[in-house]
């Protein structure tokens, strides 16, 4: 599904990703953890095609295609979804209208006819339940004046509408209280169907109590320095990131 080989990327003159290797198979949930500044969000941005980052080496194959060659919209149309850490507020565009445009652009790409209004509404109602999002929120301007929890629920709602094969959650837990976190995580869990894969990027283990990963990777200074099962997340929670540094033979004070 997704195969990352020796991926290197920089922003302006700063090297951030220094050779990432990662394989995700259909239906798997991978978590990437790491201290601030380790390159977690950069990885998410590079995979989604944000132009601020320059890929300086490596390859990414996604469902048999060279992902790095695709425009951001084509990556999305091919089934990649990035849930933003900071969803953008767009005044004047309602979520409903926007998601309708997005769904139909994806359908067009796949050679399908636009979804008719009845079908679209039915699908929307169904997916709204998934993340306990209210219709009134969706008729308002996209994310404008939404609370942190509402923004993140809106991201998961959009994910549900677009039905990606791989969803990247970029620090979806940031800024959420425990109730909002639970709702968002439950929404994600309902979208786990054995085929859809997830890449969950997080700083804290907390989210992984709800979205239980198959694999956990620790990203540090632009490289995956340790991989393991879900128990690795608990170990990190208990010992902090310092134990990784110790294992790498770095001075903890540094």
């Amino acid at each position: 599904m997704l195969s990352i080989k020796n991926l290197q990327a920089r922003i302006e003159e700063k090297e951030i990703l220094k050779g990432i290797n990662l394989d995700i198979k259909p239906g798997e949930v991978h978590a990437i953890m790491g201290p601030n500044g380790s390159g977690k969000s950069t990885l998410a941005s590079v995979l989604a095609g944000r132009s601020d980052y320059e890929v300086t080496g490596g390859e990414v194959e996604f469902n048999g295609k060279d992902l790095l060659e695709l425009s951001p919209e084509d990556r999305s149309r091919e089934g990649l979804f990035l849930a933003f850490q900071y969803p953008i507020e767009i005044p004047g565009v309602s979520t409903t209208n926007f998601i309708k445009t997005a769904v139909n652009e994806v359908r067009k790409y796949k050679g399908q006819d636009p979804m008719d209004a009845v079908e679209f509404l039915k699908k929307m109602k169904e997916k709204m339940k998934l993340v306990e999002i209210d219709q009134s929120l969706l008729t308002r301007s996209l994310n404008e004046g939404f609370s942190g929890g509402e923004k993140k629920r809106n991201e998961i709602f959009q994910m549900a509408m677009l039905e990606p094969s791989l969803a990247i959650l970029d620090e979806t837990d940031s800024g959420l209280d425990i109730d909002a976190l639970r709702i968002v995580a439950e929404g994600v869990n309902k979208l786990r169907d054995g085929n859809r894969s997830f890449l969950v990027i997080t700083h804290y283990q907390r989210l992984l109590d709800y979205i239980v990963p198959d694999y956990v990777h620790v990203l540090y200074k632009g490289k995956i320095v340790k991989s393991g099962g879900k128990e690795l997340a608990l170990e990190l929670e208990e010992k902090g990131y310092d134990f990784i540094k110790e294992e790498l033979g770095e001075s903890v004070e540094a």
Partner: peptide
């Protein structure tokens, strides 16, 4: 930023 957000959801540039 807004442009990227929309494109990342499959809307063409």
């Amino acid at each position: 930023e807004a442009l990227f957000y929309l494109r990342a959801r499959g809307v063409g540039e």
